[in-house]
Design a protein around this nucleic acid. Structure first.
Length: 544
DNA sequence: GGTCCAACTTAGCACATTGCTC
DNA sequence: GAGCAATGTGCTAAGTTGGACC
């Protein structure tokens, strides 16, 4: 039974994550297939046959030729360095300049290949389905569960986000000998491919992963874990929202506490209190320190530097304004101007004294200190709980404020999306405006007047006879107007992330039940699977 | 307290699929 | 039923957290 109600079962209390775990292991990346003879690589204008190893890495570059990445200096430098490591000594001496390398025939070949694949996708689809059925599920404690990512990441060129110092480096192929399998002792262990062995097979039920390997770019560990619909992920998700609800109960006390701490005579306590205020008010992330040169230069609250904020004693008609401008997770820019209380402002001025732009704003604070403090204030409290709490409470408040009983379903959905949007803005979940945005907006706009005309005409022509038809058109028009508004407001905002990770799904389920909105309008199939527990248990009177 | 590492959540983007319009 | 925009899914990078060890 794969859609069991795990939320009605008992939870283990001994820290074990499962009692039985059986799976088929990962799907390895397909082996490299050398290029057909007619697809050539040119060096300095002349065709050159590459060794298999060098050719494979060259194909990775060729596949990205259309991407802006391949024009970037760091990308090219890193790629070239790693590519040389795969060359024979002969190739090494011959190929001395990346600008003399011509990958266009390879690139064209791959484009043609992917075109061809689109045509014959039927058999391939069937094959994919077979692989999914064989490798995409596991058995964990009496239940068949969907696995999240059962394919090992194929080799290729690393693409970091933002200004990443390692972009272009070769992400090497993972062999069975690199892979650790985790399953229960009494299960049928997954078999490595003929003639190979796993690095290790272990039986650790204190963790949730099925497969792991170490990646060569950052040296970090990658995992195969279960799908969000699984018991093990769902329970954790549920727990996360329960922790946020406990914060709700004591947040007033905590806020009073950190406001009081702004006055502390100890610098470290004042810094901690101001940082916490930012985390609470602006939903900033904790901000761990990062190793320089290993990743893009991004920051969160605790790692903010002097150069990331500006203080304005007066700005327009406001006093004590702080301007934030920094790159956060995924190198997404955070820009905001916020008036703060005088005491916070004075503290910030103090923190900035005698510092260089590249110095830490909170030099007596880090995430570990902050989280230890939070733990003392409330069991299970960490910096990220504030994001969850503020996101969920905002959704609940906004839904209450924006929904009016008499409006139509499309209008209700617009209200829901607006509430969701308020959260996405709070959490700074941005996106680049879609490439086709202007055009699709125009399409929608031209449809609206046409429809309006239609409604008038119909109303005039068929006053009594076809009231129903007129009504339908009116509804259609309303629908289009709602869609247009929604889309315009959503131009640079990504709703998905908050919906999936920050909003207690029971708030949405309760709202849907209260106003008789079909759940499908709010959650698609995948989301309904992930939030099955909430859909089942939340009633219309649920309070976050 | 500081460093390192494992394990897990959160994130945007690329690509695939669906569904709407002509 | 072709073409294209909208929506959904997969991928994997980039965070947070806590515990071990010193």
């Amino acid at each position: 039974n794969d859609n069991h109600a795990w939320w009605e079962e008992e939870r283990a209390t001994d820290g074990s994550k499962w009692r039985f775990l059986e799976h088929k292991g990962p799907v390895l990346a397909p082996p490299y297939e050398p290029l057909p003879g007619h697809v050539r690589f040119f060096y300095d204008g002349k065709p050159m046959k590459l060794s298999a190893a060098a050719e494979e890495v060259a194909t990775f570059f060729a596949k990205m030729l259309d991407h802006e990445y391949t024009t970037k200096d760091i990308f090219r430098k890193n790629f070239y360095k790693d590519w040389r490591k795969e060359m024979t000594s002969e190739e090494k001496s011959k190929i001395t300049d990346l600008t003399k390398c011509n990958f266009t025939e390879m690139s064209e070949y791959f484009k043609a290949q992917s075109e061809a694949r689109k045509q014959m996708s039927k058999e391939e689809k069937l094959e994919n389905e077979r692989i999914l059925q064989e490798y995409g599920f596991c058995v964990m404690d009496n239940h068949k569960e969907r696995i999240g990512n059962f394919r090992i990441e194929p080799p290729g060129l690393f693409r970091g986000r933002g200004d990443h110092p390692k972009m272009g480096m070769l992400k090497r192929r993972i062999r069975p000998e690199d892979i650790i399998i985790n399953c229960s002792k009494d299960s049928k262990h997954p078999k490595p491919p003929q003639g190979t062995r796993w690095k290790e097979v272990r039986h650790d039920n204190k963790v949730t992963w099925l497969v792991s390997w170490t990646e060569n770019i950052q040296g970090s560990i990658k995992y195969i874990m279960l799908n969000p619909s699984s018991r093990i992920k769902g329970e954790k998700d549920w727990q996360k929202y329960e922790t946020a609800r406990r914060l709700k109960k004591c947040v007033d006390r905590l806020r009073a506490q950190y406001r009081d701490d702004w006055k502390s005579k100890e610098m470290r306590i004042r810094q901690r209190a101001v940082a916490l205020y930012f985390i609470d008010k602006l939903a900033l992330r904790a901000g761990n320190e990062k190793e320089e040169g290993e990743t893009a230069d991004t920051v969160g609250c605790c790692s903010l530097r002097v150069e990331h904020i500006k203080l304005y004693p007066k700005m327009d008609d406001q006093e004590y304004v702080v301007e934030f401008d920094f790159l956060g997770k995924d190198s997404i820019r955070y820009y905001n101007k916020m008036p703060v209380e005088k005491r916070v402002f004075k503290n910030l001025q103090l923190f900035l004294e005698n510092k260089q732009p590249e110095d830490d704003l909170f030099d007596r604070l880090n995430t570990s200190i902050l989280n230890k403090h939070l733990q003392e204030l409330m069991d299970g409290l960490t910096a990220k709980v504030f994001r969850t709490y503020n996101a969920s409470i905002t959704l609940q408040q906004q839904l209450k404020e924006l929904t009016s009983p008499e409006e139509s379903i499309p209008a209700k959905i617009l209200s829901y999306n607006r509430a969701n949007r308020a959260v996405a803005i709070l959490c700074n979940h941005q996106r680049a405006p879609p490439k086709t945005f202007e055009k699709s907006m125009q399409n929608l706009q031209t449809k609206v007047p046409a429809n309006q005309l239609c409604v008038c005409l119909c109303a005039w022509m068929m006053v009594e006879v076809k009231r129903k038809a007129v009504q339908r058109l009116e509804e259609q028009l309303m629908n289009l107007q709602m869609q247009a508004t929604d889309r315009e407001e959503n131009k640079q905002i990504a709703l998905g992330t908050s919906k999936l990770n920050y909003l207690d799904p029971r708030i949405s389920v309760a709202w849907v039940k209260k106003w008789d909105v079909p759940i499908e309008k709010i959650y698609n199939k995948t989301q309904r699977e992930k939030f099955a527990w909430a859909i089942d248990m939340a009633e219309e009177d649920y309070e976050f």
